[in-house]
Amino acid sequence: MRKEVPLLITILTAFIVILAFFLTPLAQTQQILLRWYAIIGGFAMFVGVWNLLKKHVFQVSRGKNTFYSLVLVLGFFMTFAFGIYSIVKYKDAFYINSPFMFNFNYVLAPLQSTMFSLLAFFMASAAFRAFRIRRLEAALLLFAASIVMLGRVPAGYALWHKLPLIAEWIMKIPSMAVQRGIGIGITLGAVGMSLRIILGIERPYLR
């Protein structure tokens, strides 16, 4: 039963969702299923948060990576307290002058931006490694990337007025052709995998 019941739920749900794509009367059933998924996801969030806190409180008590775990636990309870305080005082945690929003705008958002800005440095280091490899493919990549990069900046136009046009052509024709090829492969792969799951011959979530 441990195998059969989840398998039956999977097969039934999959068939309803597929049929709902073609048959209008089933659209409502599909919406109900999606709502159930959202409800289960909501409950799972409690499990996730509980898992996170349990792990880090345990680490603090054991003295392993204490600093990071302490920051996480304190950060969690501080944000939670700000949220409750904002609801009590402003009737809305998302009120612009509330401590919760202050925490979001001046702590969380800058931290997110900092992480995102790291991307520029990592792009440079990854590009350096990719272009350094002495192969024909790497040389082609370097050549195409240089044209595209130069074609996207005013300096490229100043160098040769046709560079932006060539850059556009690289993006629209060879690059797009490859992307579409990969896209068709992914779509067929997804159909294949979905069929394997629906037919119950592939069960990554079951033993």
Binding site: I182, G185, G189
Partner: peptide, 11 residues
């Protein structure tokens, strides 16, 4: 693993 290769991995 490029696109479909990932979806084929399990099989």
């Amino acid at each position: 693993l490029i696109g479909e290769e990932m979806l084929a991995a399990s099989a």
